[in-house]
Design a protein around this nucleic acid. Structure first.
Ligand code: SF4
Ligand code: SF4
Lengths: 145, 145
DNA sequence: TTTAATTCATACAAAATACTCCTAAATCCG
DNA sequence: CGGATTTAGGAGTATTTTGTATGAATTAAA
């Protein structure tokens, strides 16, 4: 079972790291992050690139460059992040993978999935990166495998 | 998002079909099923093969052969099925994909995942194939995409 | 202005997953 | 028995995902 893809997981871990170490000057070096979180530098770069394209991060090239949040972490929900990393229809697709069906012609498991999915969605919609980052910081939680 | 792999989806759909058409002699022809459910015959064959190896189905070769349930559908839970199709640790692994962590050193999202996972697990543990099959039959639900 | 640091872009390689094909083994029927 | 049918098993192919390598573009600093 893999609700979130590997790239999604990496992106999430990186942003969680950033959110819990915000005391810096605002920009984070990707190489340092990749080493600290034990993620391939190039792969992480590519993932964060997408997040800047989606307007969640901003980036700066050159010496002391890096990536930083574009919006406040209070204004970025976990749902936003997952949608950027996994696709806009993340919370609308069938968890089972079946295409083109819904409330009108549901399969026998639809009721279960709907419940689980809505639960997930509302939890994610109401959780900000700041919340998660604060948690991480206060509890000295780790982000590496 | 793909909670259940493609093979898992196919297996599930096939067994759901079987459970909702149990009035037959007990054995189902795989080719007919593959055509009815629009799944590649060879691929479905292999998936059902695994289920017979795992003791959920029994099979019969030769003319009028096929696959049938080994236990009563009342005694097969959705959880059993998913475990057979996706691995025994399906409900124990982290939905996020991170290895080797748990209650002792949780990541910031652990609480969310645990809730969602336990929810999922208990729903699946208490739902039998018979339940789902009956649903399907009574409501004329479809199993094809 | 040159040099170094850093993200951006793209192409390539490896691994995992999904799917196909072919032959063997079991069973039935004439 | 002999041929037809159907699942079993394994090997092979295609597609997607994950990861690597390389070079260009941008910025800072010497
Ligand atoms: S009806 Fe079944 S397959 Fe379709 S969206 Fe609902 S759970 Fe998924
Ligand atoms: S701590 Fe985080 S990564 Fe680990 S099992 Fe819980 S949710 Fe998954």
């Amino acid at each position: 079972m893999r609700v979130i893809s590997k790239s999604g997981e990496y992106g999430l871990r990186a942003l969680l790291h950033m959110a819990s170490n915000q005391d810096n000057k605002g920009f984070f070096n990707i190489r340092e992050m990749s080493e600290g979180l034990d993620i391939s530098f190039h792969f992480l770069t590519k993932i964060l690139q997408v997040l800047t394209q989606k307007g969640i991060l901003q980036s700066y090239k050159g010496p002391n460059g890096g990536v930083g949040f574009l919006k406040k972490t209070e204004e970025i929900t976990l749902a936003d992040l997952v949608r950027a990393l996994e696709g806009d229809d993340f919370f609308d697709k069938c968890l089972l993978g079946l295409p083109g069906c819904g409330d009108r012609q549901p399969c026998p498991m639809h009721a279960y999935w709907m419940g689980i999915r809505n639960n997930l969605k509302s939890e994610f919609e109401t959780t900000s990166l700041a919340d998660l980052g604060e948690n991480t910081r206060l509890q000295h939680l780790r982000l590496i495998p």
